Computed example of a mutant assay.
Amino acid sequence: MDEHSDPRTDRATEAFLAHRNLLFTVAYEMLGSAADAEDALQETWLRWVRVDLAQVRDERAYLVRVVTRRALDRLRAVKRRKEAYVGPWLPEPLLTAPDVAEDVELAESVSMALMLVLETLSPTERAVFVLREVFDIGYDEIAAAVGRTPATVRQIAHRARRHVDARRPREVVHPAQVRAAVESFRRALETRDLQGLLDVLAPEVVLVSDGGGVKQAAPHPVRGAGKVARLIVEGLGRTGIALTSEPTEVNGNPALLLRVDGEVDGVVAVRVEDARITGLYYVRNPHKLTRIASETPLTLR
């Protein structure tokens, strides 16, 4: 977006930038990929600069509608791409500012655990759920964005909500409790402490690792505290690598940035319930680690 002397373009730029963080958040929650979200934003901008702003009553609503359409088109293409992905697919982790963690609703909506649940929805269900449940957009606006009637959108929203509620974490855990679990996991990880891992991992824990065919990763989710703990300890012992970890904030939630021999190896996000880790999400694919060096601003408004 280059600067122009044209007052109309200047006004369009100002309006777009005022809502840019919101538009990115909408696109990211629909797509799970920062790169694809940025592409959807670029397409939205190209559409926006051709609009007669005098005919737009609500710039925010209009822009949300456009970015939703662009993201929905892209989501259908991305879904086909994910089907050919090597190994398990995880959302692209984003380094986020502390204010995202303080906004409980926002932090839950972009958490790795919920983003994975959203992957089980159809593209239209995901768009409707995100717009209604996360951003509290009205049914008429959603209908205009997804090309359905308001009555149909209500039905889709009800079905999507029921589907997500059956799979999302049972309760929102306080960030301090998550940080405590992450710290216990970090200590056990760095010391190769099998019992320490077993103490912090819930019996039903699931480890999902995403290498994208570029980095080594488990080809399927690993289930159960014993299997996960042994995989971690034996893997570290076999390689003899110099592993270090540092606490960070990813997708609005406490996480760990792992380094091997000083080089970034991946990000571990967690799902915590009843003070123990029930989900470990390890992103190693280097193509998905481009947003962990600087904070990505997110917002629901």
Rank of each mutant, 00 (worst) to 15 (best):
M1G: 10
M1V: 09
H4D: 14
H4R: 10
S5P: 00
S5M: 13
D10Y: 01
R11L: 11
R11V: 12
R11E: 15
E14K: 13
F16S: 07
R20I: 00
L22I: 13
L23M: 12
F24K: 06
T25F: 08
V26S: 00
E29N: 06
G32N: 04
S33W: 05
S33F: 08
S33A: 08
A35L: 08
A40N: 07
Q42P: 01
Q42A: 13
T44N: 02
R47T: 07
W48C: 06
Q55C: 10
V56L: 05
E59Q: 07
E59S: 06
R60D: 15
V64L: 11
V66C: 04
T68C: 12
T68L: 14
L72C: 02
D73H: 05
L75G: 03
A77K: 11
A77M: 03
K79V: 13
K82Q: 14
A84Y: 10
Y85P: 06
G87W: 06
G87C: 11
P88C: 11
P91V: 02
T96A: 14
D99V: 13
V100I: 15
A101V: 13
E105Q: 15
M115C: 05
E119W: 08
E119P: 05
L121K: 06
S122I: 08
E125C: 08
R126N: 10
A127Y: 02
V128Y: 14
F129K: 09
L131T: 05
V134A: 12
D136I: 07
G138M: 02
D140M: 09
A143K: 07
V146S: 05
V146Y: 05
Q155E: 13
H158M: 14
A160K: 08
R161H: 09
A166W: 00
A166R: 11
R168D: 01
P169N: 11
E171W: 04
V172I: 14
V172Q: 14
A180S: 10
E183A: 13
R186S: 12
R187N: 11
L189H: 03
L197Q: 01
D199R: 14
D199W: 01
V200A: 12
L201H: 03
L201P: 03
A202P: 04
V208L: 08
G213V: 04
V214S: 08
K215F: 02
K215Q: 12
Q216A: 14
V222N: 10
V222S: 09
G226V: 12
G226K: 05
K227M: 04
K227F: 06
K227P: 00
A229W: 02
I232E: 12
G235C: 05
L236A: 12
R238E: 10
T239C: 00
T239A: 06
T239F: 10
A242P: 05
E246T: 14
E246K: 10
E246S: 07
E249L: 15
G252H: 11
N253C: 11
V260H: 02
E263Q: 08
D265Y: 07
G266Q: 01
V267T: 07
V267N: 03
V268D: 00
V270P: 02
E273D: 10
D274H: 12
R276Q: 09
G279K: 07
G279C: 01
Y281A: 02
V283L: 00
N285F: 03
N285G: 01
P297Y: 12
P297E: 15
P297T: 15
T299S: 13
L300C: 08
R301F: 06
